[in-house]
Structures are given as structure tokens and as C-alpha cells.
Write a protein that binds this DNA or RNA. Structure first.
Lengths: 334, 334
DNA sequence: TTGTAAGCGTTATCAC
DNA sequence: GTGATAACGCTTACAA
């Protein structure tokens, strides 16, 4: 592939001049400029971004660390980032960490070796300390879906307690008394926070949710089915199931239906995330909207700005609160 | 950030020695190796991948060009690539092209400026010529979802004609006589090829599908709804709708149901893609499986191998054929 | 086993 | 306006 040297030679000018032309620099004669441009065209010259990054000390890369592109949730996250990188003429360097501590660390380290200017990191397994450390090293380091007080202005996160709380509040408000919960057994904070929110709302309503009404399972459709089977088998009475996410909710609905229990007439179901499937399953899922795409865009925007020298505001915080999306799977209790 | 120089100085050795340690090179004394490693640790040294790429002339990047991470189809494609890159310790550089000719070109050019070793490109708008040109320039250039004979061994593609054909064959086989089609109005080849396949099967069955039974609309749920409304409004008789993709099929089912037409008892519906939503919508969608993830993995694998010098076999071809996934939306006509 | 030095393709600081 | 030339951080012959 042709280099700047080849172009210079062919055009009979110096490297410096070609460089100026490439970068639309000032102080180049019109005639020279045209000539050089023509030669670049002919030679199919493409400036080497790697070399450029080396000398300018900025890569124009934004690193993204997520678990797995297969999950629609992460795909949406990545898309939110992509939209703003495209606008800023920055490239995305992708690292999937597949929900293991070492892999997550590895993913971040690799990105750093590639000297990304900025990064948007989704990490649930690394310790606060490690993450704080990275944040101190890299100005453009932004955490998404996690809040660490010491680096609060580098965190974009969803208030999961508020989320759980508003789910339960809504159910109580519609007259439901016996709430069942199907949560995730994955060892991260989110499930606990959401359940805590639910319990808080129960307490505020002068009620309690017994532990026997809370099932933990894998956070997918199958997990939702299993959890719901357990709930039904236990013989307990409930008029609504609050799910950890939309997939589990869909699984719950399928299982209820299989048992001849009408949704939402006999038992209502509520999801969490508002992914595409919430609109496609039947009945359409009433759920909590997780504005992950918007949050990811915000994260990318912030990462890029901090990377280019902007100082993070002191007490700044970027907390998002999920909102209820009313569809057909949750109705008032008669 | 510490450089190799800093490490060398602190360890009292030369650059070369440090470099050898970093690369697990041979001929380094054990004592020296340990000392250098310790210093690297202390200094938090991270080899600069950019500099390394410059001198070795290989970036360890694989570029991916897709339209938009928001679409589950493309997310799956990206995931298929990611799985392979992770295994090969290669990084993904992502470029979204959002279905515009210039943007697609731009995306490829940018990737080339970053000197990706390999690339997996989804391009529907660029001319054959342009693409052939890129393929000749870059050994690791692989096209996905498109077939260009001149560079057949660089193409991973789905046989859309066979796809359309098997949809219609299956419908005829189940006793359906009047087939309606809802296709995509996007100006790419795929819709035409699929419709051609459908017509071919019709001809083979001694039937024809009048143009009035083929509706073109946007390839999403809304488009499916619109197309189906038109079909119903036209007053024509049909017992099955073959859709361009799952989203349109879901839209069709919704509209049929809204009109009090039972699916599949009165009208059957068949999708194309087998995305997640096919399992979540009700009735569950009978559809054609598009093994995009597997195809993407194959593409990445191939790209990486060609990039590292392996010669593309001469007559090699990588054609995939979609298979029918039987669920609940399509039944035999009584 | 270790060190020296050239060079990868750029940009940027000086001169002229 | 244009041209030398020194970096940028690393790898890799070639010497020692």
C-alpha cells in the first residue's frame, strides 16, 4: 500500500507538503495541492491511521466492553454508543467479556493496549477498586449500568431500587394484594436491588412479600418458565408476577397459559427492560422501560468529552429512572 | 503511560531485552526476565499496540461493516464474528454503514485506513466492481450475504431463491392453493430473489401467483401490517401469507387477528429469518432459518485465514441454504 | 545472553 | 510556501 513517501516522490515534493495536503493544512500552494491530490488518487493512497495515532498520541478509538452481542440488551447498548461515535468520527473497538471476571479485566486491558481515547465499560464482576483505578488512569473511562460513589461522575446507571419499587407500587395501585416475584439467580447486584425496591413498596403499602413468593432462576425465558412452575406448584395464591426481565416475563406467561391460567384475567405479568419482544409476545407485555440506548449514547458522549480534556463536574451524577410502559399483560384486580 | 524505554531504563537493560520479555522471546536470562517483569508490573507497563502494529505491519484488527446494530439480524451477525475473533485474539473494529452507498464506502475506506488485517463486509449498495476491487486489494476481504461470481471464494451467502422456493413448496405441500406474498420494497436484490423462488415453486406446481397477490412494503412489523391490510382490502382469497421476514410476518398476524381472521386456522403465515421474535409472537412463527450467526463465524474465520496468507481455493463457494422451522403459524389446509 | 541501531508511516518544529 | 529532520513506541536483524 502506497505511503506518504511514495506520494511525495511521485509528486516531487517533500513529505511535509503531502502531510499538509492530507490534513487540509494551511500554507500550500493551490497548484501543489492539486498535483498532490491527483497523485494520491492515482496511487490509491490511504493515510495510515496507526502511524498517525502513534505520533499524535490519540487513536480516535472508543472501546466498548460488553458481555455478549447476542443479547438484544447489549446490542442496543452498543448501538447507542455507535450512533455518537459515528457523529464524532471515532471508531469503535469492541471487546466482549462474557460475564467472567478475568475476561472482563482482559477486555479492558486489551483496549488500553490499543490506546483507546475513551471507553464505555459494562462490568458487573470487577471490584469497585479495580474500576476506580482504571477511571483514575484513563480520563475517558465511563462505567455504564453501575454506580460507584467515588467516581460518581463517571457512572451512567439505572436506579434499580426505584424500578422495583415502581413495579410493585403500580401493582398495588391496581388492586393487587398478592405479588409473586421471579428474579435472577445471577450473582450481581441488580436482582437484589430490584427485589429490595419491591419489598420497600410492599412495606409502604403495609404489606410484606414472603420469601416463598420470590423465585430465583436464570434470567431468560426458560428461567421464567421454571420459576413460574415452582410458584404454581407451591399452591400459593397470587394475582400478579413481577419478573426480572422481559424474557422471564414471557416465559411466565407461557407457563401460566399452559396451566390454563388466563393472562392477564387471572394472573397479571409485568416485565422489565422493554425490549423488542415485549411488543411481540401475546398478550403484549406491560413492562418497565430501561432506556439503555439513550444511556449508552450519553456514556459515549461523556467518554469522548472527558477524553478530550473536559473536566468531569464535581458532584455530577447520571442516574436514570425506568418508567412504566402500559400494555396488555397487567390489569386491575376486580 | 510507561513506555518500553522507561522499563528498560528502570531495569538497567536495553530496549531489545524488554521487547523480548514482552513477547516471550527466546534467549533471555531467567534472572533478567524476572527483573524486567517485576519492573513492568510496578510501572504498569502496557505494550502500545499501535506502535507494534506499525512495525509489524499487522494490526490484529478485523473490521466489520454492517448497517446498524439496532437490528437483531445485524447484532447476530456481529456476534458470530465476535466469537471467532475472540478465539483468535483479534480485535473487532466496527463500522456501521446505515444502508447508504456513500456511508458503506466510507466505512470500508476508514477500516482500510486503520489497516485492518481482515474484514467482514455486509454491503448491499456498492457495485460489484467496487467490491471486487477491494477484494483484490485486501486478501482478508470477505463479503457476507452477497454473491459476486468473480470473487466467489470470498463470498458467504444465502441462497434466497432456494429460500423462497422452499417456502412456497412447503405451502403447496400442505394443500394451500392461493398464496399471498408480502415482500420488501427496499431496493436490494433479496426481495426479488425470494419472490423469484416463490414463483418458481408455483410454476413447478402448475400454478401462478398473480402480481396482485404480492404486496411490497417496508420490511418491518408496520410494513407487514400495511401490506396485509391491502391484501384484505383487495378482496382476494388466500389461505397463506409468505412474508419477507419475521417482523413482517408478525405484523401480518396482528392485522389478520384484528380483522377477526384466525391464524393459522383461516389464514396461515410464514416468516423468514428465525429471529428471537419468531419464538415470542403468538402463534409461534413457522419460518425459514437464516443461519446468519454461523455464516458470520465462517466469514470471520475465512477472513482471518486469507489475511494470514492462506490461498483462497479456486472454485470454492460458500452457499448456505435456509431450512424450514416448523412452529404454529402454518398448518395444512383442510 | 544482551545491546545497537535501523526503520515502520506519520506529524510537527524548525529553518529557508 | 516548502523542505529537512526529529520524534512517536516498538520489533528485529546484526553485532558483541
Amino acid at each position: 500500500m502506497a505511503t506518504i513517501k511514495d506520494v511525495a516522490r511521485a509528486a516531487g515534493v517533500s513529505l511535509a507538503t503531502v502531510s499538509r495536503v492530507v490534513n487540509d493544512g494551511p500554507k500550500v500552494g493551490d497548484a501543489t495541492r492539486e498535483r498532490v491530490k491527483k497523485i494520491m488518487q492515482e496511487l490509491g493512497y490511504r493515510p495510515n491511521a496507526t502511524a498517525r495515532a502513534l505520533v499524535t498520541q490519540k487513536s480516535a478509538y472508543l472501546g466498548v466492553v460488553i458481555a455478549d452481542l447476542q443479547a438484544p440488551f447489549f446490542a442496543l447498548l452498543a448501538h447507542g454508543v455507535e450512533v455518537v461515535t459515528r457523529k464524532n468520527n471515532v471508531r469503535i473497538l469492541l471487546s466482549a467479556g462474557s460475564l467472567e471476571k478475568d475476561t472482563e479485566l482482559q477486555a479492558i486491558e486489551t483496549l488500553l493496549e490499543h490506546r483507546v481515547d475513551a471507553m464505555v465499560v459494562h462490568s458487573k464482576l470487577l471490584d469497585d477498586e479495580t474500576l476506580i483505578d482504571f477511571a483514575r488512569q484513563v480520563p475517558g473511562f465511563i462505567l455504564i449500568n453501575r454506580y460507584i460513589p467515588q467516581i460518581g461522575n463517571r457512572c451512567i446507571w439505572l436506579d434499580n431500587v426505584a424500578g422495583g419499587r415502581s413495579m410493585a407500587q403500580y401493582a398495588y395501585q391496581l388492586g393487587h394484594k398478592n405479588i409473586a416475584v421471579i428474579s435472577s439467580r445471577i450473582q450481581i447486584d441488580d436482582p437484589h436491588l430490584r427485589v429490595a425496591g419491591i419489598k420497600q413498596a410492599a412495606a409502604e403499602a403495609g404489606r410484606t412479600i414472603p420469601d416463598s413468593m420470590i423465585e430465583y432462576s436464570s434470567p431468560d425465558q426458560e428461567g421464567g418458565e421454571l420459576a413460574t412452575q415452582n410458584l404454581i406448584a407451591s399452591g400459593q395464591q397470587f394475582s400478579v408476577i413481577l419478573a426480572y426481565n422481559d424474557a422471564m416475563a414471557a416465559g411466565a406467561m407461557a407457563t401460566l397459559l399452559d396451566h390454563g391460567i388466563k393472562v392477564p384475567e387471572e394472573v397479571s405479568v409485568m416485565g422489565y427492560d422493554d425490549l423488542e419482544l415485549a411488543k411481540f409476545c401475546r398478550p403484549k407485555l406491560t413492562t418497565l422501560r430501561y432506556p439503555i440506548e439513550m444511556m449508552a449514547s450519553k456514556a459515549a458522549d461523556l467518554a469522548l468529552r472527558y477524553a478530550s480534556g473536559e473536566e468531569p463536574g464535581e458532584g455530577l451524577t447520571f442516574k436514570y429512572t425506568p418508567t412504566i410502559v402500559k400494555r396488555d399483560s397487567l390489569i386491575a384486580l376486580k
